[in-house]
Design a protein around this nucleic acid. Structure first.
Length: 112
DNA sequence: CGATTGACGTACG
DNA sequence: TCGTACGCCAATC
């Protein structure tokens, strides 16, 4: 893109492309962005993503294990789980059920 | 300006 | 197989 897309904006774009009822991992996004395995940057971007406009469905982004590690950042720890369950995703003990089936890989879906 | 932290992930023991 | 240590890169203190 001619526009100098910031790391954050790029993350927002990918997360916004996540279909409802699907989830992805920080590492997948990080790799898609080409930042390698610096998944921490993705998580940091997510922190700002909540305040981003339009709002980014950060609740669809979980860690490699499918755990809602960032649930505490949604204002209310239960908010993230509520949002995911509202999309039809089952969560038990902060763990996404059938995570592998619900996993949305940007590298595959976007066909890099 | 330097040190620490951070919603992760991989490697090694 | 499980636990601990290290690395990434940027932002915040």
């Amino acid at each position: 893109m001619t526009t100098k897309s910031s790391f954050f904006e790029d993350v927002y774009a990918v997360v916004r492309l996540i279909p409802q009822g699907r989830v992805t991992s920080y590492g997948a996004i990080a790799k898609y962005l080409g930042t390698g395995m610096s998944s921490r940057m993705v998580g940091w971007a997510m922190n700002a993503a909540i305040q981003a406009d339009p709002p980014v469905p950060a609740h669809r982004v979980v860690n490699r294990h499918g755990l809602l590690t960032g649930k505490m950042h949604f204002g209310s720890p239960h908010r993230m789980q509520e949002l995911l369950e509202a999309e039809g995703i089952k969560i038990i003990n902060d763990q996404v059920q059938s995570f592998e089936s619900l996993f949305w890989n940007p590298l595959t879906e976007l066909e890099m």
